[in-house]
Design a binder for these strands. Structure first.
Length: 278
DNA sequence: CTGCGGTCCTGAAGGC
DNA sequence: TGCCTTCAGGACCGCA
C-alpha cells in the first residue's frame, strides 16, 4: 500500500513528466472515485506537484488543487494512451499498454501524454478542491517532525504506539509497513502504550522512523507480493527486499534469530520479534 | 478519549 | 477441476 516513501517516489518521478503541462481533459470510468467539479479541470495548467503524508496533489494555475489518495491498490502511471475500444480486451495490468483493465481515471495532457489512475480495489480517490485535501498531522519529512514533537504526541495518549504512528492526524505518512519496521528498528513492542515510552525510547523511535523512511525512499518504495505499488513508469520498488519484520512471520529476527510473530491490531497485520522488541 | 466492528472492493488463496 | 468462502487493508463511521 503506498505510504510516504512510495508517494514521494511517485512525486519525484512525475514532476519531471507533468510539471507545467496543461490538462486537456479528464476521462472518468469510475465516477465514485472522482470528487469535485470536473468542468474546472480541463485547460488547467499544472504549476506544482506536492505531497503531505500519503496525499499527492497538483497545484493548478486556476487556484485549485487536484488531490490523489492511492489507498491500498492505487497506481499513477505516466505514458501515452493506446488506441483501445473494448474493455474486455484490455490487459489486466502493466504499462506496455495503457489504459489497462484497472484504469479508473485518465488525465490527458495537451501534448498527447497522459496520467493513468489505476486502482484494482477502487478505494483510492481524486478530489478537486480549493485547498489541499491533506491530513492534519506533521509530515515525517517536514522540519516540524522532531523528536520533541514525537515525545509530545506520545505523552498525549494511552493508545498503543503502533496505532499512534499510523494516525495521520498526528503523524502523516506512516502506514502499516513502516510502522512495523520502525518499531523493530527501535526495539519497541508495537503493543506498548505510547505514554509508557521513556524519552530515550522516543528518541530511538524517532531516529528509527527517519532511518527506515529514508531507506525506503532510497529503494523507491515497497512492491511486495500483494502490494500493487509501482512507479509511474511501471517499475517496482525494492524496499521489500529489506523488510525488517513486515511479512516475515515465522522467519528469524535479524538481531536475535528468534521467530517473528504476527498478531492483529485494529484489524491490521502486526509483525514483531517477541524477545528483542520490549 | 478509546476500542471495536462494519463498510467500501477485487482477486488471490485455501478448503473440500 | 471447480465452486465457495475467507481474507487483505486506509480511512471513515456509528456505537459502547
Amino acid at each position: 500500500m503506498p505510504e510516504l516513501p512510495e508517494v514521494e517516489t511517485i512525486r519525484r518521478a512525475l514532476i519531471k513528466n507533468i510539471l507545467h503541462k496543461k490538462i486537456k481533459d479528464v476521462e472518468i470510468f469510475s465516477p465514485k472515485q472522482f470528487h469535485g467539479d470536473i468542468t474546472r479541470v480541463g485547460g488547467a495548467k499544472i504549476t506544482g506537484l506536492r505531497r503531505k503524508g500519503k496525499v499527492l496533489y497538483l497545484e493548478l494555475a486556476n487556484g485549485l488543487y487536484l488531490n490523489f489518495h492511492l489507498k491500498m491498490s492505487g497506481e499513477l502511471l505516466f505514458g501515452k494512451k493506446r488506441n483501445v475500444t473494448l474493455k474486455e480486451y484490455l490487459p489486466r495490468t502493466g504499462t506496455k499498454s495503457l489504459p489497462n483493465k484497472h484504469t479508473r481515471i485518465i488525465l490527458n495532457f495537451d501534448d498527447g501524454s497522459a496520467l493513468f489512475f489505476n486502482d484494482l480495489r477502487l478505494f483510492g480517490w481524486i478530489k478537486l478542491t480549493n485547498k489541499p485535501a491533506v491530513p492534519g498531522g506533521v509530515d515525517v519529512l517536514s522540519k516540524e517532525f522532531t523528536a520533541p514533537y514525537l515525545l509530545t504526541v506520545g505523552r498525549s495518549t494511552t493508545r498503543p504506539i503502533k496505532i499512534l504512528l499510523m494516525d495521520q492526524e498526528k503523524i502523516a505518512g506512516i502506514g502499516n509497513i513502516y510502522a512495523n519496521d520502525s518499531l523493530w528498528e527501535a526495539k519497541i513492542n508495537p503493543l506498548r502504550k505510547a505514554k509508557t515510552l521513556t524519552e530515550v525510547e522516543i528518541n530511538n523511535l524517532y531516529k528509527a522512523i527517519k532511518k527506515i523512511i529514508a531507506e525506503a525512499i532510497k529503494y523507491k518504495g515497497s512492491s511486495a507480493q500483494d502490494e500493487m505499488y509501482v512507479m509511474p513508469d511501471g517499475q517496482k520498488g525494492k524496499y521489500q527486499n529489506h523488510f525488517r519484520v513486515y511479512h516475515r512471520t515465522g522467519k528469524p529476527c535479524f538481531r536475535d534469530k528468534k521467530i517473528i510473530v504476527a498478531i492483529r491490531m485494529s484489524g491490521r497485520g502486526t509483525f514483531y520479534c517477541p524477545t528483542c522488541q520490549i
